[in-house]
Write a protein that binds this DNA or RNA. Structure first.
Lengths: 306, 306
DNA sequence: TACGCTGATACCCGGCGGGTATCACGGCTT
DNA sequence: AAGCCGTGATACCCGCCGGGTATCAGCGTA
């Protein structure tokens, strides 16, 4: 009586996102009448009205809002089941590690080196994604493990190993008066009138209100800093930002950022276990001496070049 | 091409649990041939062999193990979507709070009192469950919010508010020499030869190996302590254990237990928000003076009666 | 060797998902 | 004011697929 099929959830999500039966049907590749029927049947089964049909489209009811959120999560879980099962059936599957582009690449390289040194190490494939997308990739099974940053990323629902703790720096335009400081506080960088904080899109693609410029990628943001339009506060090791027009100034009271290795709980493949072991070994030497690691800007060495 | 329906996942879970097509079909209320067909189709779609068919049943492949775990999670998510949507459509729905029977009942009463005092408070329905079941009830939508205990319960994937921190006591038979101590250490209670720790069933109903008695409910455990067969270490406020044949002795080096209110992230109904507010108010007075709270054994007052 | 138990196969039927054609209704335009 | 357009709803048909029964095929065992 109350077994809902994933097809019905996919249909509902399409309608809830488009708020228009015709467009949703086109997106799904079916005609509009069967879609209307399916949504009606879903409403009848749940005993709940999900959409208020209007002459120019439809709007979600409160219950519809709930189902939209829950259905997305459920569909993610189903997609994850499929992806993970497929990979589990593939004997020489690589481990997929997802991380933000441009962040922690030194640490990532050390992790990959350490893992490659392990005997019988599984190959690791690196998948780069947009800011904040790692959790989603992990949840829907596109990746096995992620590099994430506390407190920035939402770590709820994942097992984690802390890899590295570091302080944060403000990246400001070299020509700006703030660049002359050798240390700053959060208060000093929070509301600089001519350097408003950039705004990132929400999950639905819209932007929050505010004075700052709208950005969608990290390189846009880097460019905006170089142009003197904005500033940002990031972990000290994110050296990708270090353009000639940038200056990094330590922010003394910004919360420390912890780089963590995160993975969905319960899924202990041998390959993942091996990577976690490598990561734990890395953690034991969080601050390598320069002699041990001659690369400049190595994570753990919070030296900020100005 | 790769859209898997929940029906197929339910079918697979049944087969994977029974390891026998005939019994699984009977449990599902269908005949065996369609079930075989469905599993074959699922294997073909995933491109992965899930079961090794044997003459006397079937055994899971590695990929099958993965899918069993993932499919259970996915089906939980779908069930949660249905349940939460149904409740969201019901205007005067009560908030369902799930907790372990016998634990934290004083704190729970204070929470319910505080919530009832709120203007326009939503009714709260209390659901009692077995040890360790709260997370599952929360995940599959049978409950909106849970009282759980760190570090005992798995809080991964939930938002939480800490309510109360307390130390732990050992509950030992009154006739046992350990009862004469006025304080104990973990080392002293860990491997007492004549009081082996009881064993709880795993999720699949089997018991881990060990010398301790097998228990399934808390009252069985209480009875076994009274009979001098075992001991246990629990938070000081779990007064349900306090039988005449029991003696509670503080365990000085046991980790502190934090009672937390936990709920699935993202689901902010007004009723839930109101309860979380009540809980946060409670947290601000974690150790009420006796004058403020004349009830004996109130949580926060770690007085241990012997 | 025959029986029994397992899952696989063959075949049929009915329901349901999907398609096209059309309706009902309200807002907009002229 | 009247017609048109765009919305979702309804009516009806068809083909596929899920489910049923009957039966087969392999292997262990009595």
């Amino acid at each position: 009586m109350d077994d809902v099929e994933t097809r019905e959830l996919r249909y509902f999500v399409a309608v809830a996102e488009e708020l228009h039966f015709g467009r949703a049907a086109a997106r799904l590749g079916i005609a509009q009448p069967p879609l209307s029927r399916a949504i009606h049947r879903l409403e009848r089964r749940l005993g709940v009205r999900l959409l208020d049909r209007d002459r120019r489209g439809a709007v979600l009811t409160a219950a519809g809002e709930v189902l939209l959120r829950e259905a997305r999560a459920a569909l993610d879980a189903v997609a994850a089941a499929v992806r993970r099962t497929r990979r589990a059936g593939n004997p020489d599957r690589p481990l997929v590690l997802v991380t933000k582009a441009g962040a922690s690449h030194e640490l990532l390289r050390r992790l990959l080196d350490a893992q490659a040194g392990e005997p019988g190490a599984a190959p690791v494939e690196v998948l780069l994604c947009e800011v904040g997308e790692q959790a989603h990739r992990l949840r829907d099974g596109q990746a096995d493990v992620a590099l994430m940053h506390r407190p920035y990323d939402d770590l709820a629902g994942f097992d984690t190993v802390d890899l590295h703790v570091e302080s944060q720096v403000a990246i400001v335009p070299a020509a700006h008066p703030l660049a002359a400081h050798d240390r700053l506080t959060l208060a000093e960088v929070s509301h600089v009138p001519d350097l408003p904080i950039a705004r990132w899109p929400r999950l639905d693609g819209t932007y929050p209100e505010g004075p700052g410029p709208e950005v969608r990628t990290q390189s846009q943001l880097a460019q905006l800093v170089a142009l003197g339009k904005t500033l940002l506060v990031i972990p000290a090791s994110s050296r990708a930002w270090q353009w000639p027009e940038h200056v990094a100034v330590p922010v003394v009271d910004a919360p420390e950022v912890t780089t963590v290795l995160a993975w969905p709980p319960g899924g202990y493949s041998p390959a993942l276990a091996s990577l976690v072991r490598s990561a734990a070994g890395l953690r034991d030497t969080p601050r390598p001496l320069p002699a041990e690691d001659p690369r400049p800007g190595s994570p753990g060495a919070p030296a900020v070049s100005r």
